[in-house]
Computed example of a mutant assay.
Amino acid sequence: MRALLTVLILCAVFIGCKKDKKPVEQISPISGKLYGVPFNAKVIIERYNSFFRMPKYTQDQLFAIYISPDADKSCASAEQSFLIRLSVPKKVGRFSQDDVYVLISDPRDATGKSGALFNSENTIIEVTSITADKIIGKVDIKGLDADTEFKGSFEAAICK
């Protein structure tokens, strides 16, 4: 009887000492609005950007991340066919202002010639993981006007 009582007490202690699990932060895929038009990312890739330059970094020190709402986009698609192009240093960290640039095309312009290039304290790109085949991170970006803002998480497949 005493052994049974001891077992019951130990079970109660173990149940009472159960660790509280911290909630896992869930961030949705990149979505928002571009020039007032709703946007949901379907394809996110990284590939070498041959034309973009930044004062603090050489081209080989930057990731060029391309984002599209069209599921049929791929590494073979033209750079201009992606509505969002992000430039961010090739390292884990949280970046804004002079460490990033965002190029947004206006989705209402079928020619792909209208858009904006910007950076600011409201332009935040965070790279949380880099592997041989993908870059994982988050964005929280507010454009120069109130009609462009998007945020969420991403896994950008690296084009080879």
Rank of each mutant, 00 (worst) to 15 (best):
D72E: 15
T128A: 11
K73I: 01
F82E: 03
L34V: 00
M1S: 10
V7G: 02
V100W: 06
Q59Y: 05
P107Y: 12
I27W: 02
I141K: 08
L5H: 12
D106A: 07
A156F: 04
F14R: 14
S114Q: 15
P107L: 13
S74D: 13
P38R: 04
G115N: 08
K73H: 12
Y57E: 01
K33D: 06
I158P: 00
D140Q: 10
A156M: 05
T123N: 08
A71Y: 07
D109Y: 12
A41M: 05
L34G: 00
V102F: 02
D106Q: 08
T148R: 06
Q26A: 07
A71S: 13
D98M: 10
D20S: 12
T148M: 07
E126W: 02
Y35G: 01
K138P: 00
F14N: 10
K90L: 03
S81Y: 04
N40Y: 11
D70F: 06
S31E: 11
I67T: 02
E79Y: 10
K22M: 09
S31M: 05
A41I: 03
Q26G: 01
R53K: 11
I141Q: 07
C17G: 11
K73E: 06
L10S: 08
I30V: 13
S31Y: 03
V139F: 02
A78R: 13
L4D: 13
D20L: 12
R85T: 12
P69N: 14
T111N: 09
G137M: 03
Q80Y: 08
C159M: 09
L83M: 11
I15Q: 15
P89S: 06
A156E: 04
A76L: 13
A146D: 12
E155Q: 11
C17F: 15
A3G: 06
P89A: 03
F82Y: 14
S129I: 03
F63P: 00
D145Q: 15
V100R: 07
V43D: 03
D60L: 05
L62V: 03
A71L: 09
V24P: 00
L34D: 01
S105N: 13
A41P: 01
K21C: 07
S77L: 07
G152S: 03
E155R: 07
K56P: 00
Y48G: 00
K138D: 05
V7W: 05
G137T: 01
K21E: 15
E126D: 03
K42H: 06
V24H: 11
V102L: 06
L103P: 00
D98C: 02
T111I: 03
V37T: 13
A146R: 10
S129Q: 14
V139N: 04
D133F: 09
S81F: 05
I130Y: 06
I135K: 01
M54A: 05
G16D: 09
L86D: 05
Y35P: 00
I65D: 04
T123W: 09
K22L: 11
K33R: 15
